[in-house]
Design a binder for these strands. Structure first.
Length: 208
DNA sequence: CTGGGGATCGAG
DNA sequence: TCGATCCCCAGG
C-alpha cells in the first residue's frame, strides 16, 4: 500500500541465458552461488538456492572426466556447447548434476554440490524419503535424488527444458569460500586446486 | 572380455 | 572406516 521501500518493486527471476554458461568456468562456478536451481515436475515447481559448486576444467584437469582429451560415451555431453546438463552415474547408485560451460570442443563443467531447497518441499521430501531439511540437498547425489534427476536428463538444455537455473540473490565476494574439491584424491596435483566454492556460514553445504 | 575403481552416502 | 552397487573404460 503506502510502502516506499524497494519491496514495492518485486524482483523478477529469470532463466539464465546460454551466454552465462559460455564464460570462464571458474567464474560460472562462483556466479552460480545464490542462483536458483529449478525443476518442473508434473507442473510442480521444485527449487532451491545453489550454495556449493565445483569447477572441472576439462582436458588439463586430472579430476575431470575429459582429462587428456578423452571422448567417451559417458562424457560426450561435456564436449558440447555450454548450457546443457551433464548427468552421470557414479558409485553404482548415485547421479550427479553438472552445468556444461564454454563452447563446443572445450569440455568443462560445474558440478552442483549443494542446494538449499525452498519450493516444492513436500515432493522433495518424498523423493528423498527423509524430512530433515538440512539433509535434503547437502550433497551432489542428494540434490539429484531430491529433484528426481536421473540419466534421462543427461544432455538436456538448461536454457529450454524443465530443468534450469534462474537469477537469484547476489552473493558478495566476502561471503564466498574457495577450497580444494571433494572426493578427487586420485587427481594428483589437481587435488589441491581451489575450485570448490560455497557460501560462508551456510548450513546447507555438503561438508564443513 | 576383463577387472579395477569411482566428481557418494550413510551406517557403525 | 567401510560396504553398497554397477557402470565406465583402459588394456589385453
Amino acid at each position: 500500500m503506502g510502502s516506499t521501500r524497494s519491496s514495492s518493486r518485486p524482483s523478477v527471476k529469470r532463466r539464465l541465458p546460454q551466454e552465462f554458461y559460455l564464460r570462464d568456468t571458474k567464474r560460472v562456478a562462483r556466479d552460480l552461488l545464490g542462483k536458483r536451481l529449478v525443476r518442473i515436475h508434473n507442473n510442480t515447481r521444485l527449487a532451491g538456492i545453489i550454495v556449493e559448486t565445483e569447477a572441472y576444467l576439462g582436458v588439463k584437469d586430472p579430476a575431470a572426466h575429459t582429462y587428456g582429451g578423452r571422448i567417451t560415451e559417458r562424457n560426450k555431453v561435456m564436449w558440447g556447447e555450454g548450457g546443457s546438463a551433464y548427468v552421470y552415474f557414479v558409485y553404482g547408485m548415485h547421479f550427479c548434476l553438472n552445468a556444461v560451460t564454454r563452447w563446443a570442443g572445450q569440455p568443462e563443467a560445474v558440478l552442483i554440490r549443494a542446494v538449499q531447497f525452498t519450493e516444492g518441499l513436500d515432493l522433495i521430501k518424498n523423493f528423498r524419503e527423509i524430512s530433515e531439511e538440512k539433509q535434503l540437498g547437502n550433497g551432489p547425489a542428494k540434490l539429484c535424488q531430491a529433484l528426481n534427476i536421473t540419466r534421462n536428463l543427461n544432455g538436456v538444455s538448461l536454457v529450454q527444458s524443465d530443468l534450469f537455473i534462474e537469477d537469484g540473490d547476489l552473493i558478495r565476494n566476502s561471503q564466498i569460500i574457495c577450497r580444494p574439491r571433494v572426493g578427487i584424491d586420485y587427481a594428483k596435483e589437481a587435488k589441491h586446486w581451489p575450485l570448490r566454492f560455497y557460501i560462508k556460514n551456510n548450513e546447507f553445504i555438503s561438508k564443513k
